[in-house]
Design a protein around this nucleic acid. Structure first.
Lengths: 123, 123
DNA sequence: TGCGAAACTGGCCGGGTGGCCAGGACCAGG
DNA sequence: CCTGGTCCTGGCCACCCGGCCAGTTTCGCA
């Protein structure tokens, strides 16, 4: 770190759409005080534009499933989730099962990973 | 979608450092063909610069632990990890135990969440 | 040349997990 | 009124998980 406050800001690009990437690169290339990062260079900031297609429709999760999912991401066991939400372990397992199905996951760890990847939850 | 190819590119900012955010906003505000997004507006791309995760010392994880951790994040079971790495389930459990200890996690799901939070792995 | 760290393996066991079956209550929409 | 969705609960059971005990080899470092 310890960067010069007056130095150029280095930006990296992580954009799926080639056309958009080109337009941005062209526009930003002419801006004084700004520079695009060389391959492998550490940038101060990154311009991202991921395909939103990964998440067709927010993947309809019910409120209760979101509750369970959030606690799962905290590493809580079914028993802890049950106590936290004031419901039975069986009900928790029911919701977890729905989550595994909707998120196309093989287990709770996979479910949390998938949910985090598509922005359903924030780690 | 269906955007006009000649329209301005809308950019949003997600930057922790206020100083950097200000400088970028000032620089980009004068670029023709480019516009910063209004609050809540959908942007074509986002400029991100998150705080380099608070991790005191990279949390010394051995190479093997990183291997196991990566497969855990994919939702793999101990048995699958064992097959994948060509080692026994006992050894996998041994490494998982070390991971839980080092990452201060209560279970594999918690371990993956912690690791992702501090940037040890990328989801 | 010891000595610790890392990696690897085994057995054992209590408790957790996930899949299956079943049921009931509530409420919006056809 | 009846259907469908969400939420809730129970039992049963095979399997997985994590923690405990024990051991081996290999490697680098002092």
């Amino acid at each position: 770190m310890s960067e010069d406050k007056t130095a150029e800001i280095v930006l990296s690009l992580e954009i799926d759409d080639p056309a958009l990437a080109d337009r941005l690169a062209a526009l930003l290339g002419n801006v004084a005080g700004l520079r695009l990062a060389a391959p492998g260079e550490t940038a101060a900031a990154t311009i991202v534009a991921r395909d939103p297609r990964i998440m067709p429709d927010d993947i309809a999760l019910t409120q209760r499933e979101l509750d369970v999912l959030a606690l799962m991401a905290e590493g809580a066991s079914n028993k802890m989730i049950a106590r936290q939400l004031g419901i039975s372990v069986h009900t928790v397992k029911f919701h977890v099962g729905s989550l595994l199905d909707k998120l196309d996951a093989t287990g709770r760890t996979d479910a949390v990973a998938h949910a985090a990847r598509r922005g359903v939850i924030e780690l």
